[in-house]
């Protein structure tokens, strides 16, 4: 778990992360998401405390922190999936492209179309592989068979799954392995081409090879999407994310360039956590 070693620094550099070069390219990007003084409650549980955060377009933001610190809760705020839970309450604002997502006039369905999500536990529909990926298109009123076919193929290719399953598109999604199911869920989210992609531990159930594929995929995807990814795996956060946010007990402790967080964090507690000395 010791990330801040020379070896890892080299690794970080080798995938194109250098503070200065990166800093410059980021300056040119516009800000996609702004979180302002955000608080979230499950009944009386104060799950997120006064969060302030800006996320740039086409950045990958990694969210790390101990279990139960509110990572999933935070992620579910961006597409308002928390709305489906009873007894929740929030204060403060989150805006995407300058539009407050809690605005009364905002259509949640539109928001969710724009903000795709892959859940912590893979959850394919009890339908065929093809139907799983085509679902998002069909509910959006797309009926053109050729178009759907094309888009399904492309999404499965983007999710690094196509070559493994191209001959069994009509089989049940449950016939896939756990890792394949997770990639199917990613393909399903990609099919509707959202602008923002929320990934909740997309690699938690995967072997190193599948994990590698997903990480490669994330690098590919950030050309088109803004990505927020929750992960328990420090190496993974270091490898895939441009920025890293460290949460603890519902608070955003530190948020910075990933290699800053992993090599030279401002706070002692962050360093303890990322180096595995924590708890």
């Amino acid at each position: 778990m010791t990330i801040a070693t020379e070896k890892n620094k080299v690794q970080l550099k080798s995938i194109g992360f250098s503070d200065r070069a990166y800093g410059r390219s980021v300056e040119e990007n516009k800000i996609k998401i702004v979180v302002e003084d955000f608080n979230f409650f499950y009944g009386k549980t104060h799950a997120l405390k006064n969060i302030n955060m800006k996320i740039r377009s086409n950045a990958v933001v990694g969210i790390i922190g101990p279990s139960g610190c509110g990572k999933s809760t935070f992620l579910r705020c961006f597409n308002r999936m928390n709305d489906t839970i009873n007894n929740i309450r929030y204060q403060g604002d989150i805006s995407v492209d300058g539009n407050n997502i809690f605005d009364k006039d905002l259509d949640v369905v539109d928001l969710r179309r724009n903000v795709g999500m892959v859940f912590q536990k893979s959850n394919p529909f009890p339908k065929s592989i093809f139907e799983n990926v085509a679902y998002g298109l069909k509910i959006n009123g797309i009926n053109d068979k050729d178009f759907i076919q094309e888009r399904v193929e492309k999404s499965l290719k983007d999710a690094a799954l196509w070559s493994e399953i191209k001959d069994r598109l009509n089989e049940s999604a449950f016939s896939l392995s756990g890792g394949q199911q997770q990639r199917l869920c990613i393909a399903r989210a990609l099919a509707v081409e959202p602008e923002i992609l929320l990934l909740d531990e997309p690699a938690s159930a995967l072997d190193p090879i599948a994990t590698g594929k997903i990480e490669e995929l994330i690098h590919e995807l950030k050309k088109k999407y803004t990505i927020v990814i929750v992960t328990h795996n420090m190496q993974q956060a270091a490898r895939v994310s441009d920025y890293t946010a460290f949460f603890m007990l519902g608070e955003l402790v530190e948020y910075d360039f990933t290699n800053k967080i992993f090599t030279n964090p401002l706070k002692k507690i962050t360093e303890d956590y990322v180096t595995g000395r924590f708890g």
Partner: peptide, 25 residues
């Protein structure tokens, strides 16, 4: 409920979710 969540997260309305995911399941 994970099926329902997946459907809603893809931008399906409540009715689409009932008709296309919940009833078939």
């Amino acid at each position: 409920s994970s099926y329902e969540q997946a459907s809603l997260a893809l931008g399906a309305s409540k009715w689409q979710t009932i008709a296309r995911v919940k009833i078939p399941a």
